[in-house]
Structure formats: structure tokens, C-alpha cells
Write a protein that binds this DNA or RNA. Structure first.
Length: 540
RNA sequence: GCGCCCGUAGCUCAGCGGAUCAGAGUAUUGGCCUCCGAAGCCAAGGGUCGUGGGUUCGAAUCCCGCCGGGCGCGCCA
């Protein structure tokens, strides 16, 4: 690759000019302005201070010492940047690479098959999935795909609480509904679930001949019902999980008890006010936390710690948990619990991606109510309103920790101002050109790329070359919005090119070169869209 | 009150291991279809990067204060 060629050329030059600094990190940036070349290095600015030299002179000296086959003579600009322009052939070579690698373009085997786990959604089975879960599903699935693209073996995991007090509330609510009570009635359970879905569950339960008095049976029925419903939502969203982990299994398999024993054995717990406490303040928490309540039951965070112990024991050295920011305080606690167990787990394990909440706007007003769920907008509502592709693209296109306003009216528009259609349209357009051409795409692998001489073609090739690097960065930072931004840029450049140049020209060599470029664009768009779970249509 | 996150163009948001970083989309305005899809392209206007200090040759980016918004702060999950 041209980038590594430039890096090693820089390294060689440094060795000669300033051997003592030859180990300095070399950062190559991709300038935004085409006039600044394909790559740029600020190494002279970095070293000027250490060497007590004028940065511009130093840059000049380094530039003169540089040589390589793939790039033109480097230029010094600004306060001391060294700008590299690739030779045309080197820049266009990426087209062939894309065509050769196909759906693997942008993928890497750097992960060497090491396991990574991404836990996301993890909704309790007490109601339909809400928009926050939708954001988690979109983010988590894309983050998982990014890790896979880097060669990791990824496990997508869904953890759910099938035992706690929330589930009791669910059972009581269904039971009350089945008895004909309504939310607000005097006998309605405190903090019961008021959504319409409770009534559906109650009706179904009765129609299967269930007894109203058997709370356990109601509980099982309701949990199964809602789990099935959540699965349908996830299926509609195009998200699949490898593992569903039940909180109850941590109790039945003795893993919760084992955690408490382990914490006590390490002297990290103490009794106070009839409860058992963990010294989480030893690990940066602002107060100690209760482990076992005075009624003898455990607080939720104990199974949480036990759960993470299983992740560690299952061999996941990289774990990414996707959660709402409203759970950020659990991070300190879980990590503290893991540290207190003394299992040799790193302090900052596991990783977390926190997302803020989603505000749904429609007709200029915030939507807060879903008919079915009662108090919140569901994933299903969003999919029904704007379609799966738009929901997934939108929810992934913002940084996770920024608040997100989901404009339903914007996402509905199957025209101009909708970014997802803009990207899909670019893909469909390329497909359309190929349909009209009617030739064999395989024949393009030997297209005479040197025929591509325009600025726009050069810029497109440059953009294509960035794709693998963007993927690697997005994977490292668990930041799928990079992918959405990249796709928009690439689509924009393609549309611009398409408008300026005719692809299907008479000249056969030029035509096949342009088609090869188009094929590479199509492939890259498809790879990126697939990563975030959005379809790449041939027609729209 | 304490902790974490956020404040960038009218609106929705990128950029934040300092420089080549004042950006994209949208909205507004003006152009471009006899011609591979106008769901598109080209162009213009529009911002003291919340605010006040500090570090630096250089700050949207790093540090501190303040203002504004979000989320946490249970023997709930």
C-alpha cells in the first residue's frame, strides 16, 4: 500500500537526518483539501521543538531526503507540513484491489479470530422494545459487525432479567387485568404496567385456560409472550443474537453465591444495619454498596458481577457493553466488584458504549406515547413509520453519547433530504448503469485504469482508498457513525461524478475503466451499508 | 449539593491524542433534464465553535471558573 510506503520512506529519511528521533511516531493524515495531497505529515512540526530547529527548514530537509516509487516529490507547506501526492497509477490501483477483494474489501484479519463479545439491548421482558432499545440494537449490531470485519470472532449477546421484582410487577399487572381490573382502579397493583399489551397478554392467558390464581404460571406465560414479541421486533430490525443469557441461571447455577463468597473471602465486605456491604469505595465509587439486603436477597448488581465473571471465564478479553447513559453508574460498581474478586481482570474491563436517549419528533411535536406500550414509543412504531433501513441508518449516524432527535417526517421522505435514500440511490444508480451496459463485470478486472485522468476520478479513488482505514478506526473506537458519514461522502462524490461524466462512452477502453471505477464504488457502498444493516437496492 | 455527558450555521449534526479545522446535510436563493435514474448536480448567502480566563509560537480541540441542557446519585432493576 502507498501509505506504508510513505511511512517507511519517512522513517528512512529520519534515520539519516536525526537518528536520535528516528523512533518518533509517524502520523500520516489525509488532508481534506485535495490541494494538500493524498497524505500529509506533521512530523517536522513535532520534532522541531526537540531538535530546536525551525520547523519549515526541517521539513524542507526531510522532504529532500525522501524518495519512493509511488509518490511525486513531496512538498512543504504551511508552517512545516510535508504533503505527498501519489502518482496517478498508485492512486487508481485501489480500484483493482476493491474488485479483487469484493465483499471482503475493508475487512481485515488483524483480529486473528480472537473472541469479542458485544452485549446489547438486554431488555427485560416486561414490555415491547422502546426507541432506546432500537438505538442500542442499531449501535450494538454495527459495532459487532465492525469487530467481525477486523477479524474477530464476535458473540452478540442479550442478557435479560427473568427473575427480579420487575417481573413480579408484570405478573401482578397481567393477573389484575385478567380479573377485569384497569389501571387506576383501587385494587390495581402499585407501579403496575399500564400498557395495552398487558390486556392482550391477559386475554391470551385466559383463552389458553390459565388459572387466575397461579401467579407463577402467569409470570411464565407473560415472559414467554413478551420474549416472543421482542424477538419479532428484533427480527424486523434485522438483528440476531448468538446467546440469550438468563439472569435466573446465575442463581440456579450458584454463580451469585460464589461471587458473594469470593468477595467475603477477600475481606472486601462488612455487615452493617443487618445488610452485607461491599467496599466499592476502595475502587473509586463514591459510596459503598449493599450486596445482600436485610431481607436476605441480593441487590441487582451481584448477579451483574457474576454475569461479567462468566464473560471473563468464557474467554472474552474484549467485551463491549452497549447501554443507555442512565445506567452509567453501574460501570463503576461492576468494575469495582470484579476488582474486589481479585481475578486478575484489568481495571478498565469491560468497555462500555453509552448512548443518550432518543427524542422522537413528528409533525413538529415530540411523540411520547405509543398506543400499544402506553408510555413510550416502540421500535415497532418507528419501523412502521419510516421503514427499517431509515431507522437503522438514522440511529447509527450520530455519536452514541449525543442526544438524538429522530425526525419522523424527515426519515419518511423518500426524496431529497433523506440521507439513507441518498446513499441507496447512489448504489441503485450504479446498478442501473450496469444493467444498460449489459456486459460481463468480470471483464473489468483488466480495465485500463490509466485512462481515468479527471480530478473527480482521482478524488473518488482517494475516497475508496480510505475505506479500510475508516473501518479500522470505527472498530477500534466502537464508533459506527464513522461508517454512516463515510457512506454519505462517497455517495456525494459518486453523484457528482455521475453528473459530470458520461460512463457509457463510445471509447471501449475509457468505458471499461469508468465501469471498473463504478463497480468499485458500488462494492464499497454495499460493504458499508451491509455493515450497518441497511439494504443496498438495485432499484428504488 | 455531588458525579458523568452535552452546548459548533435557522434546524439536525460531524470535527475535539492543537497546526492543512470553520465543516456536512437540511432550510433559503439562483442556475442545470431531446442525452447512462433530476430521489441528482453546480453556485451563493449564513457561525466570535455557550461564556470568561489559563497553557501554547498556535486552541472548536488541553486546563479552570461560570451559564444552559440531559442522565445518574435506593437495602429498585
Amino acid at each position: 500500500m502507498s501509505k506504508t510506503e510513505i511511512e517507511s520512506a519517512l522513517r528512512r529519511a529520519l534515520q539519516r537526518i536525526a537518528p536520535e528521533q528516528a523512533g518518533a511516531p509517524i502520523l500520516l493524515e489525509r488532508p481534506k483539501q485535495a490541494g494538500h495531497g493524498d497524505f500529509s505529515s506533521n512530523i517536522a512540526l513535532q520534532l522541531a521543538k526537540h531538535l530546536k530547529r525551525n520547523p519549515r527548514e526541517l521539513a524542507q530537509e526531510i522532504a529532500s531526503a525522501l524518495s519512493g516509487d509511488g509518490f511525486e516529490r513531496p512538498q512543504v507547506a504551511g508552517p512545516g507540513f510535508i504533503n505527498f501526492h501519489l502518482k496517478s497509477g498508485a492512486r487508481l490501483a485501489v480500484i483493482r484491489t476493491v474488485l479483487e477483494k469484493g465483499s471482503r474489501y475493508g475487512h481485515s484479519d488483524a483480529g486473528k479470530g480472537t473472541p469479542v463479545q458485544v452485549e446489547f439491548v438486554s431488555a427485560n421482558p416486561t414490555g415491547p422494545l422502546h426507541v432506546g432499545h432500537g438505538r442500542q440494537a442499531a449501535l450494538g449490531d454495527a459495532i459487532a459487525a465492525l469487530q467481525e470485519a477486523q477479524g474477530h470472532k464476535v458473540t452478540r449477546e442479550f442478557y435479560y432479567n427473568d427473575a427480579g421484582s420487575q417481573i413480579d410487577k408484570l405478573a401482578w399487572s397481567v393477573q389484575a387485568r385478567a380479573k377485569g381490573l384497569r389501571p387506576g382502579d383501587a385494587a390495581w397493583p402499585e407501579e403496575g404496567y399500564a400498557g395495552e399489551y398487558i390486556e392482550d397478554i391477559a386475554r391470551d392467558y385466559k383463552s389458553t385456560g390459565g388459572e387466575l390464581a397461579e401467579l407463577d404460571a402467569i409470570r411464565r406465560f407473560a415472559v414467554d409472550y413478551l420474549r416472543a414479541e421482542q424477538d419479532l421486533d428484533l427480527q424486523a430490525f434485522g438483528v440476531k443474537f448468538d446467546v440469550y443469557y438468563l439472569e435466573s441461571s446465575l442463581y440456579t447455577e450458584g454463580k451469585v453465591d460464589a461471587v458473594v463468597k469470593g468477595l467475603a473471602a477477600n475481606g472486601k465486605t462488612y455487615e452493617k444495619d443487618g445488610a452485607l456491604w461491599l467496599r466499592t469505595t476502595d475502587y473509586g465509587d463514591d459510596k459503598d454498596r449493599v450486596v445482600r439486603k436485610s431481607d436476605g436477597t441480593y441487590t441487582y448488581f451481584v448477579p451483574d458481577v457474576a454475569y461479567h465473571v462468566t464473560k471473563w471465564q468464557r474467554g472474552f478479553r474484549r467485551v463491549i457493553n452497549v447501554q443507555g447513559t442512565d445506567h452509567h453508574s453501574t460501570i463503576t460498581r461492576v468494575r469495582a466488584g470484579l476488582q474486589a474478586l481479585g481475578l486478575g481482570i484489568p481495571k478498565d474491563w469491560p468497555d462500555y458504549v453509552l448512548h443518550s436517549l432518543v427524542k422522537v419528533m413528528r409533525g413538529g411535536e415530540e411523540v411520547k406515547i405509543s398506543k400499544r406500550a402506553g408510555s413510550y414509543v416502540t421500535v415497532r412504531d418507528l419501523i412502521d413509520w419510516v421503514g427499517r433501513d431509515a431507522v437503522r441508518f438514522f440511529l447509527v449516524s450520530r455519536k452514541a453519547d449525543s442526544e438524538f432527535v429522530f425526525d419522523v417526517d424527515l426519515a419518511r421522505q423518500k426524496s431529497d433530504e433523506n440521507p439513507v435514500y441518498y446513499v441507496q440511490y447512489a448504489h441503485a444508480r450504479v446498478c442501473s448503469v450496469f444493467a444498460q451496459w449489459g456486459g460481463d463485470p468480470a471483464s473489468l478486472s483488466h480495465a485500463p485504469l490509466e485512462k481515468l485522468a479527471s480530478e473527480r476520478e482521482s478524488a473518488l479513488a482517494r475516497r475508496l482508498e480510505e475505506f479500510p482505514e475508516m473501518m479500522a478506526t470505527a472498530a477500534r473506537e466502537a464508533a459506527p457513525h464513522d461508517v454512516a458519514f463515510y457512506l454519505r461522502e462517497l455517495a456525494a462524490q459518486f453523484h457528482s461524478y455521475y453528473n459530470a461524466e458520461r460512463i457509457l462512452v463510445e471509447d471501449e477502453e475509457l468505458r471499461s475503466a469508468r465501469l471498473a471505477l463504478c463497480a468499485a464504488v458500488r462494492q464499497t457502498l454495499a460493504n458499508g451499508l451491509s455493515l450497518i444493516g441497511v439494504s443496498a437496492p438495485e432499484k428504488m
